[in-house]
């Protein structure tokens, strides 16, 4: 017996020569993204919009490292990658697992596109 209740999509691509995999899973209260170059979840970060209202101005996002390296770059990467997902998903919080060998700005931009290609929201 299989189930389709949990909607999930995945893809992979070489980014700057590094094999990169994305798995996006939709929950009613969260979007769960795993972005990995190690084949594991790595650092787990929750990215939560400040308010539910879809204001004209950009909502603020709170990032919290639930597991792993709690350093500024982790927050920056998570926010950069998850903000637009959260907005497109009706301001849903995003749980993102990051296991990156390369977190240069060029790589992160390409990863954002990769996540977008796995849209489940």
């Amino acid at each position: 017996m299989s189930t389709t209740m949990i909607k999930t999509r995945q893809t992979e691509k070489e980014i700057n020569g590094v094999r990169t995999q994305v798995i996006c899973t939709e929950f009613s209260n969260y979007i769960f993204i795993v972005l990995t170059q190690y084949g594991k979840i790595g650092t787990l970060v929750s990215v939560t919009p400040e308010s539910k209202s879809s204001d004209v101005c950009m909502p603020m996002f709170t990032t919290k490292v639930l597991m792993g390296k709690d350093e500024p770059l982790t927050h920056v990467c998570a926010k950069n990658l998850a903000t637009c997902v959260s907005q497109e998903a009706g301001n849903r919080p995003v749980l993102i697992g990051l296991a990156l060998k390369d977190s240069s700005i060029e790589a992160v931009k390409l990863m954002r596109d990769l996540i977008k290609s796995c849209q489940v929201w």
């Binding site: 995945q10 190690y38 084949g39």
Partner: peptide, 21 residues
């Protein structure tokens, strides 16, 4: 447990669903 940990060879993540009454 961070991403900086030395990984083994890259094994792609796989997804599997099942259900039961």
């Amino acid at each position: 447990m961070s991403g900086a940990e030395q990984g083994d060879a890259f094994d792609a993540i796989t997804v599997y669903n099942f259900c039961e009454k």
